[in-house]
Amino acid sequence: MNVDETDLPGLGRRKDFMTASGRRIGVVEYREGQTELIVSTWDDPDTCLASVPLTADEAAALGNLLGGQRLAMQLSEAHREVPGIVTRQFSISAESPFQNQPMGKACIRTRSGVSIVAIMREGEVLPSPAPDVVLHPGDLLIAVGTQEGLDTAASILRNG
């Protein structure tokens, strides 16, 4: 992936790339620290159809969503040969009983047979998280298991 970085004198930096569908997408990072998500129009990749100001938390959340999607797609690809195995993502909401608790407390593998293979946090991947990893609100758990097991795991994470 080739990301272009361009200086904007007096303002900050722009980092963007062209998508396969012919749109330019990226971020503008201002000197003062704000971030803006930019998307070009479909007929003129030089313009911006939208520029959305994002807070640090929002940018991290968006990064998790996109990064998690990619990881989940790769995992599904890897498990395609094994029938009955599915990859799913769970996000830890601010209401989750396990937020700010070590993951082992939820006993997900014991109770549902599901494996948490990675955690996406602030745009970064924690692979094979140990049971003592503390879950934060906004974390995205990448889980692998059977359809029923994943339903159980979802209910455990939501309701305890």
């Binding site: 361009t6 200086d7 904007l8 004198p9 007096g10 303002l11 722009r14 963007d16 330019r24 990226g26 503008v28 803006e36 930019i38 990749p45 030089d46 313009t47 911006c48 939208a50 520029s51």
Partner: peptide, 16 residues
Amino acid sequence: GRIGNRETPVVLSILV
């Protein structure tokens, strides 16, 4: 809303 536009660095560098 043209800060993210591609021509904006060109304009800015002329101003510089």
